[in-house]
Structures are given as structure tokens and as C-alpha cells.
Amino acid sequence: MPEVPALGEFEQMVLLAVLRAGQGDAGAYGVTVFDALAARSGRRVSRGAVYMTLDRLEQKGLLASYQTTPTAERGGRARRCYRATRPALAALRASRRALVRLWDGLEALD
């Protein structure tokens, strides 16, 4: 069984934002991922950190990307859309399970 990669807190948030933004019509790309994070994370998010994390997750094989058709609105440039890979889903599930186990019995603090 392949080893599940460990995820940092921000990486988890970005992966979840990719999954959420991917459900929309526009797909998950820089703008929608940032919007999803800003709307749901409840904290200030750096645009640059989002792009750097997306790039790092792709290099780790946790995200795959594809390009759309260039449009005039984007100055003749294409969108780079992301989707989560199987290892990413496995890593997210593992993180969630670990957190749930750690929270077990501490619900009163919630």
C-alpha cells in the first residue's frame, strides 16, 4: 500500500478549496480557489501563498492541471484549472481521521 503523504494545514485548506471550487461552472483555478478560501477559511489569505501552494501540491502529485482556451478577457491567456488526484483525496481523508481521533472525547471544548 503506497504511503499517504503528510499535509500541512494550509495545504489541506487549499486542497479542500480546489475540491469546492471544482464543483462550480468555472472550474478550480487561481481566482475561484482564492475566493473559496477567502469565503470559508475565516482568515486573511495571501494570493501569492495560494499560487505557491497550488504549484507545490502539483509537484507533489496531489493536484493535476489542464489549460482552457485563451480568452480576450484574460489578455489572450489560458486558465490553468486544477483537480485533486487520488493520493490527495487519500491524504485529506487520513488527515481528517487523525483529527477526529484526536478530538475524540474532547467535544466539550468545541
Binding site: Y29, V31, Y51, D55, R74, G75, R77, R79
Partner: peptide, 19 residues
């Protein structure tokens, strides 16, 4: 800093939001 591919997509995103 980030390579041509990622830079192009970032610049495209910024352009889209600017417009």
C-alpha cells in the same frame, strides 16, 4: 521566480480580475 507556465496563468487570473 515561478516558471513561464504558472506565471502565464497567474497573469491571466490577474488580468481577468482587473477587467
Amino acid at each position: 521566480l515561478v516558471g513561464a507556465d504558472l506565471a502565464e496563468s497567474i497573469l491571466g487570473d490577474l488580468e481577468e480580475q482587473r477587467s
